[in-house]
């Protein structure tokens, strides 16, 4: 389903909303915080160690590389060569020259993305979807929101299987899916239309099932399970937000 990797440790035992708040604070600090080295500092001093202690270094590194590499590549090439602020030439490659200011800019952007991505991956890797939904509901998320998130996650494999079945059926009827652009474009509607129409019918029936489970009842809902949310974490979240705001403020005015 999600990128969640089962495990145990400090991060796994924290309340989902705590991790969410931490992630958002890091994201804001990375882009609005003081100093150019802040994002890299946060990553090296906080995020990477946390990944290490949670036993997630391999998947962490793998995901960071998978997502960042293409972005970093284009950032360095584009800005190194063509950033308007570029003046100091480092070296030339044929007709184009790599300039220092562009490279610095690319490095800064990459470190920011590294920091934000690093924080979000920590959150997603250590939070099972059920805990996330429960945690959000505990903090006031409306039932329809948690319903939609959970239902989406569960329907995905189901729908993928159906798309594969429709593709196979259409191909058996002679649908061409390779060849010229015109041929491939013509394959689109025969694959998409049955999928969407059948899904709409399912949605209609599922609405009846939801009513049957009293989802629209006006009675206050109770919960089968409960997630521990110790006061320590509550305080930590507030401290996190305050520190972030202070640091951002400091960065703007000093």
């Amino acid at each position: 389903m999600t990128l969640y990797i089962p495990g145990d440790g400090f991060l796994y035992r924290r309340h989902p909303v705590t991790k969410l708040v931490f992630m958002l604070c890091v994201a804001f600090l990375a882009f609005l915080g003081p100093g150019r080295w802040t994002p890299l500092l946060i990553f090296l001093a906080a995020l990477l160690p946390l990944a290490l202690f949670s036993g997630l270094v391999r998947p962490y590194g793998g995901a960071l590389w998978r997502i960042l590499a293409p972005l970093a590549f284009f950032l360095f090439v584009l800005h190194g060569l063509f950033n308007p602020a570029g003046r100091t030439v480092l070296f030339s490659v044929g007709p184009v020259a790599v300039k220092l200011e562009g490279v610095v800019f690319a490095a800064l952007m990459t470190s920011r993305l590294l920091c934000v991505l690093g924080a979000s991956l920590l959150f997603v890797f250590t939070t099972p979807p059920s805990a996330l939904m429960l945690g959000l509901a505990q903090h006031g998320a409306p039932p329809w929101l948690t319903y939609v998130i959970g239902a989406t996650l569960q329907i995905i494999p189901h729908m993928r299987a159906r798309a594969a079945a429709i593709t196979a059926a259409q191909q058996a009827r002679g649908l061409e899916t390779t060849g010229s652009l015109r041929v491939r474009a013509r394959a689109l509607m025969p694959m998409v239309t049955p999928l969407v129409l059948s899904s709409l019918v399912d949605a209609e029936e599922r609405a009846i099932a939801l009513e049957a489970r009293a989802f629209r009842s006006s009675r206050p809902k109770t919960s089968l399970t409960e997630l521990a949310d110790p006061p320590v974490e509550r305080v930590a979240r507030q401290a996190c937000v305050v520190c972030t705001l202070l640091l951002i403020g400091a960065g703007q005015w000093l």
Partner: peptide, 8 residues
């Protein structure tokens, strides 16, 4: 119906 539609 909308709530059932959105995930789909």
């Amino acid at each position: 119906v909308t709530l059932a539609l959105i995930p789909v």
